[in-house]
Amino acid sequence: MPTTVPISDDSIRLGQFLKLAGLADSGADARALIEEGEVTVNGEPELRRGRQLRKGDVVAVDDPRGSNSAEVG
C-alpha cells in the first residue's frame, strides 16, 4: 500500500513529487531515476520529469534498495 503524500495545489510535477515523497534525495537523483526508467506512474513507465501528477496518481520507484511507492494526496 503506497504512502499518501499531500500536495497543496491541484497538480505537481513528477520530479518535484519524487523529492517531496522522499523517493529521491535531490533533483539530480530524481532526474537520474526517471532517465534510467526506474519510475512508473499508475503502473506505466514514465520518462518525463515534468509529467503533471494529480491526486490519486501512484508513483513507484524501483532502485537497488527495493521498490517504494507513494500516492499523490
Rank of each mutant, 00 (worst) to 15 (best):
T3F: 12
T3R: 15
T3N: 14
V5Y: 04
V5S: 02
P6G: 07
I7F: 05
D10G: 15
S11T: 14
I12S: 00
Q16R: 13
F17L: 02
L18C: 02
L18H: 02
K19N: 08
K19V: 13
K19E: 11
G22A: 05
G22H: 03
L23A: 04
A24F: 00
D25I: 02
A28I: 00
D29T: 03
D29K: 02
R31F: 12
R31I: 10
A32G: 01
L33I: 08
E35T: 11
E36G: 10
E36L: 15
E36I: 04
G37E: 07
E38T: 11
E38C: 15
T40C: 09
T40S: 10
E46Y: 07
R51Y: 07
R51L: 12
L53E: 04
K55D: 13
D57Q: 03
V58D: 03
V58T: 12
V59E: 02
V59F: 06
A60C: 11
D62S: 14
R65N: 15
R65P: 05
R65I: 11
G66H: 04
N68I: 09
N68H: 13
N68L: 13
S69I: 06
A70M: 03
E71P: 08
E71A: 14
V72E: 01
G73D: 14
G73K: 09
